[in-house]
Amino acid sequence: MTTNEIHERLRAQFGDAVGPLSEPKVDPFATVQAARIVEVCRWLKDTPGVEIDFCEDLTAVDWPKRNAIEIVYHLFSYKHRHGIVLKVEADRAKPVVPTLEGVWKAANWMEREVYDLFGVTFSGHPDLRRVMLPDDWVGHPLRKDYQEAGGFHGIPNLRENPLVELRRLDEVRLAEEAKRNPPPPPPAPAAPKAPAAAPPAASGGGAPPAPQNPPPAPKA
């Protein structure tokens, strides 16, 4: 059965609860009313000839412009090798959608993930808690308006640019060393020809001080 045929049968069964099939850009989908989604899916699973037994994907897309979060269901049937994509629109301010855990067990963890990352509550879910993020995380990251909290339990989530940071640390270290062992004052220049002993090269940064050449023996 093609997607169109499944959609027609859904329309025949559920009427207006199932929206029209969108244009295929690239995959077509149909929007279903949130209240009827469990019935629809159970019908899809149990009806002979349709028998959709594999909940391939259950995810969400956040549309702040439309003030909705779309829950997307990709459904497939191993037996008949056909599938359909359904969507449920949930209000962005308080997204609540009935759970499909009773229909396909695969929905259990995927709904937990949607709850974790989008904040959508699935009513009737036996164990709705965060799956990937820690239990005391604040916020739902995959929403478009998510702002990072700037740290978690005191662990910062920003750090200095290492190039800048290492240079700064090097300068601090050299300053401390200079304070502890003050460098000898440079000797007064002896003969015009004798090259002045070069002060130890201290390039700002991480280069180690250049080894001192022993001063040349004074020419007679």
Binding site: E56, D57, T59, V61, D62, V72, H74, K105, A106, N108, W109, M110, E113
Partner: peptide, 29 residues
């Protein structure tokens, strides 16, 4: 089966990229 769900909104950046992996569902069981 590794399934990718990509939603595009007409710009150069994807609107949503989703990778449905096999191991995630295996944890569920």
């Amino acid at each position: 089966e590794l399934a990718y769900y990509v939603v595009s909104d007409g710009t150069e950046r994807a609107y949503r990229v989703r990778a449905r992996t096999g191991s995630f569902l295996a944890m569920g069981i």
